[in-house]
Design a protein around this nucleic acid. Structure first.
Lengths: 256, 256
DNA sequence: CATCGCCCTCCCGTTGAATGGGATGGCGGT
DNA sequence: ACCGCCATCCCATTCAACGGGAGGGCGATG
């Protein structure tokens, strides 16, 4: 009567349980969790109980389950990337206020950009979700910056892999992408007119740590018709300002 | 040759691995992790490898390990408390700017206050760490507010348990605490002169969701000599402003 | 007030995923 | 070439985890 299907670690299942939660459904019943994570009810119940014991999940007054703050606490306390986020925040807000469009702070995670901060304009071209969104490296301005300054193994992996098309303007050719990356390194910034959303242009610049490693990218999204390049000085100034704060702060230097 | 000491789930060990990381040591070698988490090297190595596969940990170019952004992503994407944090942030910053002292946003987690936002004054009475710090409920202003409006089972648990003393002013008597909580409910705020740091006074007010549940507490820390009560109007105004934003936002209503 | 439907937890015999001591293979310093 | 340290791999052993089903609670419906 034991494990019928095999090869599933507790950890794997725990992660699947976390993934069952979404911004729309922040609390779930155990049976819901079991359904979404594809687990037998008994297993889900036991695993949830244990996760609650460790603070990874929390229970409501009724028996519904939500994600525990412990998870966030563990992540925030000890991630250099997130202390970078804290350091950059005030500058990001200033930038957003002066530019009046979507302003984002993206870092490399896996083979994608993860946006750790995302300030939205009230009436903007595109409606973005708040934070913790991901985009592919080859089709977003931040992604291209992070890729251009990333390790060669990363570049080769991305160039070799499939390069999905989102709009007619998306760069999907390996050779074309290679040249674009070279240009990014030469210029120190990137302009992406309509690469991922047909009617929006992304502009991104790198943020470097004291040892010249690129740790993150700042980007803004403007409508295609605006003179995108005119935004560049403000963007570069913001990047410099964040870099200055990074050097002053006793924050660790994150590379990846 | 198997399990010599028993009764340790993978989850438990995974959490201990996370806890091995601190703000000071954001990256660790596997052997370090093994030492800190009290695990055999082989076990640590295998577990770390699996956690990396799931994005819970990340590896540097050298082989050192850091906490994966996936953890933060999972937590941020689906926690109502953290979207409350996002909503409250601008107001918190305004409050900090106008008051010029430590300004904090605390929520109930377990039987403690967890500060999800903490804006520090440059030259302040006490030097706080950035975020994700915890304080006991009975000895902090935010804690007292959260406790006063918390469930009776929570209150009984805290009143029954030990009430550690931090300063001569700390409330350590169960009866005394019970009366203080009643006063907090009557007044709608709390003043804590020197309860946890001898030379600082905390002031806290509750933040309520649309259904009148207390979801969080806003607090400021001022030196004892200042007229602490004079800060109250600004604090209340900030709380009201956050409540207004909560009602407007399509954010879930967190209670615990 | 029974009955039904749904949800959750506990029970318990079974078993394979996890374990950990030690061998193996790197890497850097001397 | 040798040593010290680190990390991964190997593999026989075994206990933590498994999951079907029983049992109990809760609310809605007839």
């Amino acid at each position: 009567m034991a494990r019928s299907d095999s090869g599933e670690s507790v950890l794997e299942r725990a992660v699947r349980i976390f993934e069952a939660f979404t911004p729309e459904t922040t609390t779930l019943a155990v049976s819901e969790i079991a359904r979404r994570a594809g687990l037998p009810l008994a297993t889900a119940s036991r695993l949830v109980a244990e996760m609650v014991r460790h603070g990874l999940l929390a229970r409501d007054d009724d028996r519904r389950v939500r994600i525990g703050l412990r998870l966030w606490e563990l992540a925030s306390r000890a991630s250099p990337t997130l202390s970078l986020r804290e350091t950059a925040m005030p500058v990001m807000e200033q930038l957003q206020a002066s530019i009046g469009h979507h302003t984002q702070l993206g870092v490399l995670d896996g083979d994608e950009v993860l946006f750790v901060e995302r300030l939205s304009a009230e009436h903007a071209v595109i409606n973005y979700t708040r934070i913790a969104a991901r985009l592919p490296l080859h089709a977003s301005s931040s992604g291209l910056v992070l890729l251009a300054y990333g390790s060669t193994t990363l570049q080769e992996r991305v160039l070799a892999g499939p390069l999905p098309r989102y709009t007619p303007a998306t760069v999907t050719g390996a050779e074309e992408l290679r040249e674009l990356l070279a240009r990014v390194r030469r210029q120190g910034f990137v302009l992406c007119p309509g690469h991922i959303h047909a009617d929006a242009t992304g502009i991104a610049v790198p943020i470097r740590t004291a040892d010249r490693q690129v740790a993150a990218a700042v980007s803004v999204i403007v409508p295609n018709d605006e003179r995108a390049r005119a935004r560049l000085p403000a963007l570069t100034a913001a990047a410099r300002s964040i870099e200055r704060r990074l050097r002053d702060d006793p924050a660790a230097p994150p590379s990846e």
